[in-house]
Design a binder for these strands. Structure first.
Lengths: 331, 331
DNA sequence: TGCCTTACTGTGCACGTTCACAGAAGTATT
DNA sequence: AATACTTCTGTGAACGTGCACAGTAAGGCA
């Protein structure tokens, strides 16, 4: 049994293809009589527009591709992704756009993405966690509009984005430590080719000034294990630290383990601050004082930017959203 | 500047459209000379096949839709999803299929999914965490092939699936408790309209027999908060319990908090076992003894089933994969 | 020589839609 | 009464591809 076409609907409604098409596409010139007849015909026949045929003539695909640049292992450890995916699906659906997912973790995958996008298979591109210097950005060149959730280092003026105010969040946590009377404040950063890695450190340094010496700064890669390692390293380098700002909750969980192993009490001996307010923050002991990012709004603003670009807008400014300090028991 | 078509490639290679099409689609009858000429023409022109045009004639879309039935809040708390998405994208890409994501958390969204799928916009459907009695399954009816990652309660014989051996995992944990000499073993289950909720309880009961009384069983909904609540409830009902098997790590994290609040030592007073071996299991204190599911294999087998169905296979059996006990410090 | 098979190539058509255009019917304006 | 404008409708063409079919050339075999 064949799927009904626009012809079938037109015949059933006693009008022509053109009129049905006009109704479907929201054209204003459709008489009330035709309107009801067509609507009945559509529901009777169970007609659904054929996107392939539509794409062929409109040169639009009705889909947006989300490109995940993170290497596989780390993919989705971040709750950020789930919110973004959820919000993206919902907001795109309202415009009848569907969300296609692609991976871009290695060269072969990036090649696929470039072919896909340049081949005209997407009306928009949604970059996620694209690292500094990622060749993908250049390769995408002048294709369909692209935005990013979180800044793309080195392309801040090319790829519009929505992001949390990373520096603000870092300042909030660091100032809180200072206000609590902590004297030797250390930091465990994220990778220094990501905005979260760079800007959280900048915020930290803005508050502490010259007290933020390199001896008090260790680098992680967002994983729990790296947080544990970095904490052990810090304790060795500067045994007298009494607070540590960790650039992610997951790494902070690792840091807590290292502190426990070293026999330091939290928050008694050392205060620990995380970042993200992910589910991990509630599972640790003690629960983590952390910085909450407005994940939902970040996702919404990102998609809004993309939709605006698809609609032909240009020269869009990045959207920077405020963070919030969440005080629990670790600091 | 227009995108090159198959015509342009044919002209550049000095052959006809048909020959180019044959090469593209792997037909055997293409002369070596034509082959090299076409391949050069393709790379010179930067030709990429137009999927819309192809779909129109082949009646295939080149995409598979992943339907997320979980209500939004819980979406992606489970690491299961990230693995499945990653594996799905990778395996589908090898067949030049792309992954489209859709939500089916409420009636309106289900309606969208049904229209999309029945409208012929997907070559296959990948169900995730579909609850018992979900009307979506019926509504999808005789559309393109559908599979599920994890059983769909009530449709086990209709929708092929790959899943972990939930009962086995529950038995492993329960037997471990028994072997350790625990006498009063309780359980916190998941929702009883999910396979994980039902079957993990079944495994538990298989080992304990009549010792698994309803007094020792409390129900949660996979969230941390529900685990905490259920644990408090159990302590009230049966203060003498010395072990508890919690059907997910996240709920186990909640249970640990309740035990700490009640002044019970873990594992001294009460042994705690989780399920999933998610990242939460390492962040708790003490780290959770838990049951690991072979997530990657589950995902691979699920996609393999779907691809087989798309290729026309029928009568596929479910794939059940073994779990593994991971012993840490909570039991 | 004639005929069959194998290897390969080109052509017309159909897929289902949107869009530009032409035109009809009704209404307001001159 | 003629004209212009608004509202609405139908029609042909085009989008880029795969497929069925027809056709060609070369080689093997009787």
């Amino acid at each position: 049994m064949k799927r009904p076409t626009i012809h079938d609907v037109a015949a059933a409604a006693g009008v022509s293809r053109g009129t049905v098409s006009r109704l479907l596409n929201g054209d204003k010139y459709v008489s009330p009589a035709a309107r009801v007849a067509i609507e009945r015909a559509i529901s009777e026949t169970g007609y659904v527009v054929n996107r392939a045929a539509r794409s062929l003539v409109t040169q639009r695909t009705g889909s947006v591709v989300m490109v995940l640049s993170e290497p596989y292992e780390k993919l989705f450890e971040d709750p950020n992704y789930s919110t973004l995916i959820r919000v993206a699906i919902k907001m795109l659906a309202e415009r009848d756009l569907s969300l296609v997912m692609m991976l871009a973790g290695d060269a072969a995958e990036r090649e696929r993405v470039v072919r896909y996008v340049r081949g005209g298979h997407a009306d928009g591109v949604l970059l996620v966690s694209t690292h500094a210097g990622d060749p993908l950005v250049e390769a995408l060149g002048s294709g369909p509009p692209a935005v990013s959730c979180g800044a793309v280092i080195g392309h801040e003026n090319v790829i519009p984005y929505a992001a949390a105010d990373e520096r603000l969040g870092a300042r909030q946590m660091t100032e809180y430590f200072v206000d609590q009377g902590r004297r030797r404040i250390a930091m465990i950063t994220g990778p220094m080719d990501t905005p979260g890695g760079i800007q959280r450190l900048e915020g930290f340094a803005e508050v502490l000034g010259r007290r933020a010496t390199s001896k008090l700064i260790a680098h992680g890669d967002w994983t729990r294990a790296s947080g544990e390692r970095a904490m052990a390293e810090l304790l060795e380098r500067a045994p007298d630290i009494d607070a540590v700002f960790v650039a992610s909750d997951l790494m902070a969980a690792g840091a807590l383990a290292a502190l426990r192993a070293a026999g330091r009490g939290v928050p008694g001996d050392v205060a620990v601050g995380g970042f993200d307010d992910s589910s991990v923050a509630l599972s640790t002991h003690p629960p983590l004082t952390t910085v909450r990012q407005p994940l939902t709004e970040m996702a919404q603003e990102t998609i809004r930017l993309l939709l605006a670009l698809i609609d032909g807008a240009g020269g869009l400014e990045p959207v920077i959203l405020p963070t919030e300090l969440v005080i629990r028991e670790s600091a």
